[in-house]
Structures are given as structure tokens and as C-alpha cells.
């Protein structure tokens, strides 16, 4: 199916260090040493970033189903988050699903 609807696919970069600390995830970009602590919703997105599931579906499954949040707001927040992480080379965003 042609993905002309602006679907986003996110995958985790290899150039990071990551570890759960309590309920949050510590992530450091190896490229620029930027350090992030992701809250449980952001951690859920990170963990689901398999490169083949559209971001909207990740948000529905990992966020909307578990946290009390309106789907469009959750999606907008997720886009903002993944763009910030992509800016530090922590996540990759693609318009097509990754080939396995």
C-alpha cells in the first residue's frame, strides 16, 4: 500500500546507550553525549520503536491503551518527542517501514 498519508516509522539507533532506572529510561546519544531520561510513556514509545509499526499504532497500543490521554494529543506529543530524539541521533524516523 502506498504510504502517502504521512505515516511515520521509528527505529532505535545503535549509537546510543540505554538503561532503565526505576520506571524511567536513561538514554545517551553517543554522537553528542546528550543525555535524556524518558518518562514511562516516552520509554514505552522507545521500546516499541521497531521500524515497522507506524507511530500512530505504537501510540495507540503503548500509550492510549495504558494511560489516560486523548489519542490526538498523545500522537502530537509523540511526534514532538521522536523528532527531538531524532535530532540527537537517538531514533530514526522514516516514511517507509524498515525491511527486515
Amino acid at each position: 500500500m502506498n504510504d502517502s498519508t504521512g505515516k511515520k516509522y521509528i527505529s532505535r539507533s545503535q549509537a546510543v546507550a540505554a538503561r532503565m532506572l526505576g520506571e524511567e529510561m536513561m538514554i545517551m546519544s553517543i554522537r553528542d553525549s546528550a543525555l535524556f531520561s524518558l518518562n514511562p510513556t516516552a520509554s514505552a514509545i522507545w521500546q516499541a520503536a521497531d521500524g515497522v509499526t507506524p507511530l500512530r499504532e505504537i501510540v495507540e497500543r503503548a500509550i492510549v491503551a495504558h494511560f489516560e490521554v486523548e489519542p490526538d494529543t498523545a500522537y502530537r506529543d509523540a511526534v514532538e518527542l521522536v523528532e527531538a530524539l531524532a535530532g540527537h541521533g537517538i531514533l530514526k524516523i522514516a516514511a517507509e517501514p524498515a525491511r527486515s
Binding site: 532506572l21 526505576g22 524511567e24 536513561m26 553525549s33 546528550a34 543525555l35 535524556f36 531520561s37
Partner: peptide
């Protein structure tokens, strides 16, 4: 970044996690 490292270190101590 320094302060986030300190924050994580404080949380690790609280949780008993060997951060480094």
C-alpha cells in the same frame, strides 16, 4: 547535562542501583 547526571545518580542511590 551535569545536573541530569546528578539527578540520575541521586535516584540510583535511592533505588540501590549501581549506576556506574
Amino acid at each position: 547535562m551535569g545536573s541530569l547526571v546528578e539527578e540520575l545518580n541521586a535516584r540510583a542511590i535511592e533505588l540501590g542501583v549501581p549506576l556506574g
